[in-house]
Amino acid sequence: MLVNVLNVISQWAIPLLLLIIPLYGFIKKVPVYEKFVEGAEEGFRTAVRIIPFLVGMMVAISVFRASGAMMVLGSLLKPITDLIAAPAEIMPLAIMRPLSGSAVLGMAAELMKFHGPDSFIGRLASIMQGTTDTTFFVLTVYFGSIGVTRYRYSVVSGLSADITGFLVSLYLCHRLFG
């Protein structure tokens, strides 16, 4: 039931926006097509401007992951993860969460395939996937689009939110499904 409702919402959200906004503009006597093209052109330029930032970030993350350094970091963190009762399988996902959205989605899918979506690990991976955005992607892309290179404390506040999201997911998973 709920799945169907959610499916309908996600199917209709974008068509409705595409229907309502241009209609609204037309009623307000906006030259809708001309304004659309004007905005679209800005979008085009912005997307191209972030390429160098994203190349830098994705190369570093990819080297870190492919080389096995991520697994080493995971095993170094083992005393801490044992303390908070986090399964070892979930740690690579937790480390990647702030770094790369697509990598995490792939890892979550892999864990669900192996352990099943309704296992403890499957549920924890699902909750973590739905929690917090990819901090470094957002930082890179948003600041890249305006050429800001000094991020100041935003890295710390973003990461503290990520860690909170992880700990709360873990706690809830133990409480609800443990």
């Binding site: 926006l17 595409l18 906004i21 241009p22 609204y24 503009g25 009623i27 307000k28 906006v30 809708v32 304004k35 659309f36 093209v37 004007e38 905005g39 679209a40 052109e41 800005e42 979008g43 085009f44 912005t46 997307a47 191209v48 972030i50």
Partner: peptide, 20 residues
């Protein structure tokens, strides 16, 4: 991202011009 950005910022421009 180029196409998606162009689409949404185009729609946003309409919403902006209409005062939404």
């Amino acid at each position: 991202l180029v196409g998606i950005m162009a689409l949404w910022l185009g729609i946003m421009k309409i919403a902006e011009s209409g005062g939404l």
